[in-house]
């Protein structure tokens, strides 16, 4: 709950507008725009509704909010989170190697296969960039 309240409310409204636009696009047969609007809109609605409800819940329970803040900033919790992210990245990199092959097997357009390869390379590039950056900071 680090974002200001107006951001969450704004994103919720944006989500509703996008979902409505998606429905309108679906009505007019524009499937791609319908999918995008409904997908992004539903995501924004869901996540921001959850954030607003959580905010309301903790406003009535300040002691629980304080404990939650302590638990989330707790060094052991952070260490677990960072290790979990690192392990998940290691596993996902293997999955990302497989995706271009699946796309080729599905006879996908070349640009899609190359985009998948590009994303795989981007993940490694980001790892190198952060390694260098953190090496200078620490």
């Amino acid at each position: 709950m680090n974002r200001p309240l107006w951001v969450e409310r704004g994103l919720l409204i944006l989500g509703v507008l996008l979902a409505a636009a998606g429905l309108l696009a679906a009505w007019n047969g524009a499937e791609v725009w319908a999918g995008l609007g409904l997908g992004i809109g539903a995501g924004l609605i869901g996540s921001n509704t959850a954030m607003l409800l959580t905010r309301r819940y903790y406003r009535k329970r300040p002691e629980q909010e304080r404990q939650k803040r302590i638990d989330s900033g707790d060094e052991r919790s952070m260490a677990i989170r960072y290790q979990a992210k690192a392990k998940a990245f290691d596993r996902m990199i293997i999955v990302m190697i497989v995706v271009p092959f699946l796309l080729i097997a599905a006879q996908s357009p070349l640009w899609l296969v190359l985009a998948a390869v590009g994303l795989y390379l981007l993940a490694y590039l980001l790892q190198i960039v952060y390694t260098m950056k953190l090496g200078k900071q620490m």
Binding site: I70, D74, E75, R76, S77
Partner: peptide, 8 residues
């Protein structure tokens, strides 16, 4: 007292 979780 130490502002950490009980699990820690």
């Amino acid at each position: 007292a130490l502002q950490v979780s009980r699990q820690t």
